[in-house]
Design a binder for these strands. Structure first.
Length: 365
DNA sequence: TCTGGGGTCCTAGGACCC
DNA sequence: TCTGGGGTCCTAGGACCC
């Protein structure tokens, strides 16, 4: 087979669960969920295949998981071990070609340079398993879009290969939700036209689709045909935003406590900014009421900041301005408009006098 | 069943400018 | 009197992903 472009998507199987089993092998074969406390407001981050038989899946409220599967064992994740295992996986992938990390447990690898990508896919999966004891599934195709669907097609420990030219045929019977980027909202709009499968989407009357989806219509149909020209990008680039949020166990209206939380989150955000050598020009406060409606307000400052004090001050200011004493279930704080302090700023202001410390940040709204 | 936490990208509207 | 068109920047919210 002649491959001009060959992209592998590797996806770790029930990754958090399998990392847990490295430390607690006695839990093997049991219904396990890694995630938040089932007596509180936690959700399942990862469920073992034994738990999935009961209908438990990730993002499900833990309280529901325990109803579906009363014998399920909830465990906390070991973040350092997850990170270390992930790093070991990524190191292996890098040996095969340019690697784009999508999260701790999945990545794309461009293996176009290899003569026999199909064998490479199998070797890659086995190398990862041998090095980490953690199972993975791989998908190989000429595009990121199809490879991602392929890696999910035969989990766990699957290897699905879609040859060049077979993409549209492979996708045709699959539900539109299989396409990354088509979520519940888009799927339900499509369902109004009786479009359920990728094949139906690919062949649907374009003008009708355009009336509802406008500019998105063309891209939807291209994706349904498996057309995707995106390249594997190994450089992660600089973060665009950093945020923290907490959901309380019970709804609260304690302003002093909110202040304390804002202060703690600001401290952590400030630390992240400094580690990344970035300053933020915008601070966003997020609050969520008990009916789950969510509200965000942001404040931009002319001179960027990376200090706990300034971030906290802006966060508290927004709370003071907009919170009217209701009970809240969540509070969050974020920074965005991130700039490297020594990069662009100096180019933009070549005459800036650095001998004077910058004056206090000025809000411009 | 009552919904985590950390992100990215897109859209739409308003302000402002020429 | 009641009215242009385009461009850019900013904000808020929503969809989506893992």
């Amino acid at each position: 087979m002649v491959w001009t472009t060959a992209i592998i998507h590797l996806d770790m199987d029930a990754f958090f669960v399998n990392v847990h089993l490295l430390e607690f092998p006695e839990d093997k074969g049991k219904p396990i969920a890694v995630g938040g406390n089932p007596s509180g407001r936690g959700v399942v981050a990862s469920a073992s295949y034994e738990a999935r038989k009961f209908g438990v899946h990730s993002a499900m409220p833990s309280s529901r998981a325990i109803k579906l599967c009363p014998q399920i064992k909830f465990v906390r994740h070991n973040w350092p071990l997850i990170k270390a295992t992930s790093a070991a996986v990524m190191d292996i992938l890098e040996e095969f070609g340019p690697t784009e990390r999508m999260s701790v447990d999945e990545a794309y690898v461009d293996v176009s340079e290899h003569k026999d990508p199909e064998t490479i896919a199998l070797i890659m999966r086995e190398r990862v398993k041998a090095a980490t004891q953690c199972p993975a599934s791989v998908g190989l195709s000429p595009s990121k879009l199809v490879s991602k669907i392929a890696s999910d097609y035969d989990k766990p420990e699957g290897c699905t290969i879609i040859l060049p030219g077979d993409e549209e045929q492979f996708l045709a019977p699959l539900p539109v939700r299989a396409i990354s980027g088509i979520g519940p909202a888009t799927a339900s709009k499509l369902a109004q036209f009786n479009i359920e499968s990728c094949g139906q989407l690919a062949n649907f009357d374009y003008p009708t689709l355009f009336a509802t989806f406008k500019n998105q219509a063309e891209s939807l149909q291209r994706r349904a045909r498996g057309i995707d020209q995106r390249k594997v990008v190994s450089d992660p680039g600089q973060s665009k935003s950093i945020s923290q949020e907490t959901t309380f166990n019970n709804d609260l209206d304690d302003k002093e406590y909110f202040y304390k939380k804002i202060s703690e989150m600001a401290d952590s955000l400030s630390g992240s900014l400094r580690r990344k050598n970035l300053i933020a020009h915008t601070v966003t406060l997020k609050i969520r009421w008990n009916d789950f409606t969510t509200f965000t307000r942001q404040k931009s400052i002319e001179n960027g900041t990376d200090t706990q004090k300034e971030i906290a001050r802006l966060g508290r200011g927004i709370l003071d301005q907009f919170w009217e004493g209701e009970k809240l279930r969540l509070i969050g704080l974020g920074v965005s408009n991130l700039i490297e302090p020594t990069g662009r700023q100096l180019e933009l202001f070549p005459d800036l006098d650095l001998s004077e410390p910058p004056s206090d940040s000025v809000e411009y709204n």
